[in-house]
């Protein structure tokens, strides 16, 4: 359904006066999403997760230049097409209640999305009622303003906006941090249900634990590139290919809680070779001259030359 290959995002920034510099924040990012599956995008902050979402939705700021190809249903995503599809065929479930209009009742906001998708007013109203029922929102909730609903309810309202839009592709940006485990499970189950209806779902998160609960496949991003794309079972079965993915898995508190030292390289000072080389336990001379290409290893994709050992 969605296929992103070699995506790059470059920002041009003013340095001093009129001198500009180019800052490439995403390099060689690849991702594929099929109908009916949940793909989790996992990575540290600054790894390009949110920028990917913004690129797919065509809402990057004006000083950003996008390279590479993005295909949606086989057709390239041009800025015009993005604008057409946004909120209709491609929907975003934003992070927090802050994305709702604070001065509009939540029912009205969801209804407006339905109407923008071509439903008549009465049909939209029924759609809202049904969706609210489906997500266990009390009937009086649609008369509430965003500040009057709890965090968990706000989350369900945000999912409702994606559901009434009939979108084929739903992008959920960090839907879980700081929520109680029950609410996390509930939110993730809603995403799973959306996939079961035949939609494609991209779950953007930094929380591998949450991602593994619901995802079919997991794409691990590192410093603006795809380090590995693995199936969710690969984590528990120890079939991970990239040293960074292995490190992430080991650093979970329920596993070893042992981190790899250091930080992700900043976009201003990316190494020439493998982006993980300065923290990698496997690093050799061969890693340094050029970036490894994404290649298939043990039925997954990985950007590491030592992955098959």
């Amino acid at each position: 359904m969605l296929s992103v290959s070699n995506l790059s995002v470059t920002f041009s920034q003013y340095e001093k006066g009129l001198r500009r510099k180019q800052l490439t924040v995403i390099t060689d990012l690849d991702l594929e999403v099929q109908a009916g599956e949940v793909v989790a995008v996992v990575g540290a902050s600054g790894s390009g997760k949110s920028l990917l979402a913004h690129a797919i939705l065509g809402i990057l700021p004006e000083n950003a230049a996008v390279g590479g190809t993005m295909l949606f249903h086989g057709q390239p995503l041009t800025p015009e097409r993005c604008q057409q599809l946004r909120g209709k065929a491609i929907a975003l479930v934003p992070q927090s209640v802050g994305y709702l209009d604070p001065l509009m009742r939540v029912g009205q906001q969801v209804q407006r999305v339905a109407q923008l998708n071509g439903l008549s007013k009465p049909a939209a109203r029924t759609a809202v009622k049904q969706t609210f029922q489906r997500y266990d929102l009390p009937p009086q909730a649609d008369r509430c303003y965003p500040f009057q609903v709890s965090g968990g309810m706000a989350r369900r309202v945000l999912v409702s906006t994606a559901v009434v839009s009939q979108a084929d592709l739903v992008i959920a940006d960090e839907p879980t941090p700081g929520l109680h485990p029950d609410v996390v499970t509930e939110t993730l189950n809603h995403l799973r249900e959306l996939a079961q209806e035949g939609r494609g779902v991209i779950l953007i998160t930094h929380d591998i634990g949450a991602a593994l609960l619901v995802a079919d496949r997991v794409a691990v991003f590192y410093a603006g590139t795809t380090a590995e794309i693995a199936s969710a079972q690969d984590f528990a079965s120890g079939n991970l290919r990239h040293p960074y993915t292995q490190a992430l898995w080991r650093s979970l508190p329920q596993n070893d809680f042992v981190p790899v030292p250091g930080t992700q390289p900043s976009p201003e000072a990316l190494p020439v070779g493998c982006l993980f080389s300065d923290r990698c336990p496997w690093v050799t001379e061969a890693c340094l001259p050029e970036r490894p290409a994404l290649r298939a290893v043990r039925r997954g994709l990985v950007r590491c030359i030592h992955a098959d050992r």
Binding site: P177, G178, H206, D207, I208, S251, V258, P259, V260
Partner: peptide, 17 residues
């Protein structure tokens, strides 16, 4: 108070260490 809830697992472990 939820000091590392918005961080990735590796950074969380590094900071707590």
């Amino acid at each position: 108070d939820e000091m590392t809830a918005m961080l990735d697992a590796n950074t969380q472990a590094l900071i707590w260490q």
